[in-house]
């Protein structure tokens, strides 16, 4: 865990054991993310009035993140963008997780299927990741659907590798041999014996996929292949800010990016703490 967090731990959580601390961190971080998503839902165009009288203001108490070239409050825009990013990240990670489950179960079906899955992983990893997302996004005609599918269909590789290794190990277990000898079908073994073991792994893997998915979505949008310029996405805000950099409007880029960084770190923190909770080896630390 990071230094800052450790220091906070010491002073804030005195008297709590690790399990309680972990749960508390999980609760707080999840609440933060949920708050961002929920508040972004309540922001519509009316809360972002165009006011040319107060355009390009530097950060102040009234506008903590400053205002943009149309006088819109950057804090509101950033919140809206973060909400969108989280939702897209969630959607993409969920689709990736489903793909992982399907491919994992497929690889447990037999040798040929397993090498097919391995081949698919290698193929996906052979093109630079960002380029592949761009390519898929273009192929689907861009827009939100293009990014979501592009991000979702390229992030399953690492988790699938883990799941495959896990399945290989599970298959050597006695109870699976017994089941097979009792005449249970492959499908029965896959869903009744293998899948329950994989669920925690997949859950954790999905959450750890989140940060990558969000960063990739923002990057692709920033480059101009993702969401359209009318969408309030972080990538759009940042690519817009490039035009005002030489004018010295640093807040247009600084705060939205920093917020994105914090959201990504929060997801990392959730994943790490969840991993601690689920792994009994670390539970005694």
């Amino acid at each position: 865990m990071s230094t800052a967090a450790v220091n906070v731990n010491r002073s804030l959580f005195k008297g709590l054991n690790l399990r309680q601390k972990t749960l508390l961190i999980l609760g707080l971080t999840s609440f933060l993310l949920l708050a961002i998503v929920v508040s972004s839902l309540f922001i519509d165009n009316e809360s972002l009035p165009t006011d040319f009288g107060s355009k390009n203001l530097s950060p102040s108490l009234e506008h903590p993140f400053g205002t943009d070239w149309m006088g819109r409050d950057m804090l509101t825009r950033t919140l809206k963008g973060l909400g969108l990013s989280i939702v897209i990240g969630a959607l993409a990670s969920l689709i990736s997780a489903v793909l992982t489950v399907i491919l994992g179960l497929l690889s447990s079906a037999g040798k040929a299927a397993d090498s097919f899955v391995a081949w698919l992983v290698d193929l996906t990893l052979s093109i630079p990741h960002l380029l592949l997302i761009i390519l898929i996004s273009i192929g689907l005609g861009g827009g939100a659907q293009g990014v979501i599918i592009g991000v979702a269909s390229t992030h399953w590789t690492s988790l699938t590798r883990i799941v495959r290794a896990e399945i290989k190990q599970l298959k050597t277990q006695d109870y699976i041999h017994i089941s097979r000898n009792l005449g249970k079908s492959k499908w029965w073994i896959a869903t009744k014996h293998i899948l329950p073991h994989l669920i925690p792994q997949i859950l954790l893997g999905t959450i750890l996929m989140f940060p990558h998915a969000i960063l990739h979505e923002a990057s692709v949008t920033f480059l101009g292949f993702g969401l359209s310029p009318h969408e309030p996405a972080i990538g759009i805000i940042l690519s817009e800010s490039m035009r005002y950099l030489s004018a010295g409007y640093w807040w247009l880029a600084f705060f939205p990016g920093l917020s994105l960084l914090i959201v990504v770190l929060t997801f990392d923190l959730i994943g790490e703490n969840l991993g601690k909770l689920m792994d009994p080896k670390n539970a005694h630390e």
Binding site: A218, L238, A253, G257, L260, L261, V264
Partner: peptide
């Protein structure tokens, strides 16, 4: 460790923008 964690979560293009603002513009 903290430095590495934060870096791993940093959007590449944002860091580029920040460096550009500091070293080129400012």
């Amino acid at each position: 460790k903290t430095y590495c964690y934060v870096l791993a979560a940093t959007p590449t293009f944002w860091l580029a923008l920040v460096l550009l603002m500091i070293f080129s513009v400012y």
